[in-house]
């Protein structure tokens, strides 16, 4: 094919079909079988049932993963040391979602946060207590686990995080 014919034919494609037809169709992700290894999760879930928090520590870089992770990508090592964690944590970052009630049309603001559990080196998505106003959320906010009534050994055993009252003023008083 000469250079001229090639050029011409590319233009031809567009000129001849002024409007390309649209054919509607549907495409679903109907079923899905995702595989993942859960061995490292078992002790974590057992502890959750007892209302206790544990993280998995990498013996090479000492990072603590909460919830646990099967492999530390930094060291290419399998974390194998379980460490106890406190119930407190801090808001690492947050955003506010605006959910519309389908019936009333009312928009409700909800803060959703990433919490770094004290003693761990990771964050995880969580919710704040419904009592916390979305306007009061900030990065570094001290929070504490609010346990579900009957822990079942799932991540939802941490129902949400309660705000920890800032007691630094009390501390200063005590110093006096």
């Amino acid at each position: 094919m000469s250079k001229r014919t090639q050029r011409k034919s590319m233009g031809y494609i567009k000129k001849d079909y002024i409007r390309t037809r649209t054919m509607p169709g549907s495409w679903y992700l109907s079923s899905y079988r995702f595989k993942f290894n859960i061995t490292h999760f078992k002790p974590f879930q057992d502890k959750l049932k007892e209302r206790k928090l544990v993280g998995l520590q990498c013996s090479s870089c000492n990072r603590v993963f909460f919830p646990p992770r099967l492999i530390c990508g930094k060291c290419f090592v399998k974390p194998d040391r379980w460490v106890d964690l406190r119930e407190t944590g801090r808001v690492a970052t947050f955003t506010i979602t605006y959910l519309k009630d389908l019936e009333t049309g009312e928009v409700s603001e909800r803060p959703v946060v990433l919490v770094q559990q004290d003693g761990s080196d990771t964050t995880y998505t969580a919710q704040l207590s419904p009592d916390v106003d979305y306007k009061d959320t900030y990065i570094g906010m001290p929070v504490k686990v609010h346990w579900a009534e009957e822990p079942t050994g799932g991540l939802m055993d941490i129902q949400f995080y309660d705000l920890v009252e800032d007691n630094s003023k009390d501390l200063e008083l005590r110093k006096d």
Binding site: R69, L70, K74, L114, D121, T122, T123, L155
Partner: peptide
């Protein structure tokens, strides 16, 4: 780099400050 916000297989995310 290590993922942020979502970890792998339900684990914590390693980027503390995204």
């Amino acid at each position: 780099n290590e993922s942020g916000v979502l970890g792998y297989n339900g684990s914590g995310a390693g980027q503390l400050d995204t």
